[in-house]
């Protein structure tokens, strides 16, 4: 029974629970609808989706959260999961199709129509602008590394770790930005609609975010003084020295953070190959001459 206690939230968040329950319900309904329509999605997509959601929930709403509040390296691991692993898995599973099927009929008609029916037509333009901005191939990576950097500025970090509201804001912002960024990188162009980002551009973004995380992580793990005294001041949760705690945290930002770019590159290359194959199938003659227009790409 003692072990079950570790699975309970350290600080219960109704918001996290609500979002997770709604998402799971929507997804399950979508799976059921697709199966009923004779287009089941199989095992792996739902598995990857639920895995991404589960690891994100676990680092927020279990005893892990307590450790993350009182040990710097666990904090770094938490942010790595919230910002990199969880959202990337969710995006990789291609959840949009399933989630859309899970919506009530009215919601499936597409965002513009829903807005029109709710008499919120005026919102369409600002929403579109906001989405385009967040998905911009220059802004998305800057926001991604900018957030990692921002929450690790020692002064900001100090305030964040003693203020519950700032702490929650950090976690939400990292997860939301994780979804936005990995959507730019990992989603197929066809699914990205009007804000689609080309595959070659993505291959430029990935080394950039990798390099930035290496610089941040290396700095944290190599400086010979304490950057984040708050963990020692408020009582450390694990029996390691503050300097070692900081060094492991830096390494976690440095190595796995940067390694995620490699995973990104592999996924993007797979998308590119798939696109090429599709082109060959559609118009074998045209694809042979380089520089010719590519009809299949216009679909995006």
């Amino acid at each position: 029974m003692r072990y079950l206690w570790y699975l309970l939230p350290w600080q219960f968040s109704p918001a996290v629970l609500t979002v997770c329950v709604l998402t799971v319900a929507l997804y399950l309904r979508g799976l059921l609808m697709l199966k009923r329509n004779g287009a089941p999605v199989g095992f792996w997509r739902p598995f990857v989706f639920f895995l991404g959601l589960a690891v994100s929930y676990a680092v927020l709403q279990t005893y892990f959260d307590f450790l993350a509040q009182h040990s710097f390296w666990v904090h770094c691991l938490q942010q790595l999961i919230l910002h990199h692993l969880g959202p990337a898995l969710i995006v990789l599973s291609g959840p949009v199709l399933v989630l859309r099927e899970g919506l009530p009929r009215a919601g499936r008609t597409g965002a513009p129509r829903v807005l029109r029916e709710m008499r919120l037509d005026w919102l369409r333009k600002p929403l579109r602008l906001a989405w385009r901005t967040l998905q911009h191939p220059l802004i998305a990576p800057l926001l991604f590394v900018g957030l990692i950097f921002f929450w690790l500025i020692p002064r900001v970090h100090f305030a964040t770790m003693i203020d519950t509201r700032r702490y929650l804001l950090m976690n939400w912002s990292m997860f939301a930005d994780g979804l936005l960024f990995w959507w730019v990188i990992l989603a197929p162009k066809e699914e990205q609609g009007s804000a689609a980002v080309g595959y070659k551009v993505r291959l430029l973004i990935l080394p950039f975010i990798s390099m930035t995380q290496i610089v941040i992580g290396a700095y944290i793990s190599l400086v010979p003084w304490q950057l984040y005294p708050i963990y020692a001041l408020c009582g450390r949760a694990l029996a390691i020295s503050p300097m070692l705690d900081q060094q492991i945290g830096g390494l976690l930002t440095w190595i796995p953070g940067a390694m995620m770019s490699l995973v990104g590159v592999i996924v993007v290359l797979r998308h590119m190959m798939r696109e090429e194959e599709a082109q060959l199938r559609m118009s074998p003659l045209r694809a042979e001459t380089p520089g010719s227009s590519r009809p299949s790409a216009e679909v995006a």
Binding site: L129, A130, T133, I139, V197, G198, V201, A297
Partner: peptide, 13 residues
């Protein structure tokens, strides 16, 4: 790049 180029706004300020 096969995506048609588009004007995008830098509104992240």
């Amino acid at each position: 790049m096969s995506v048609p180029s588009r004007r995008r706004t830098l509104a992240c300020a």
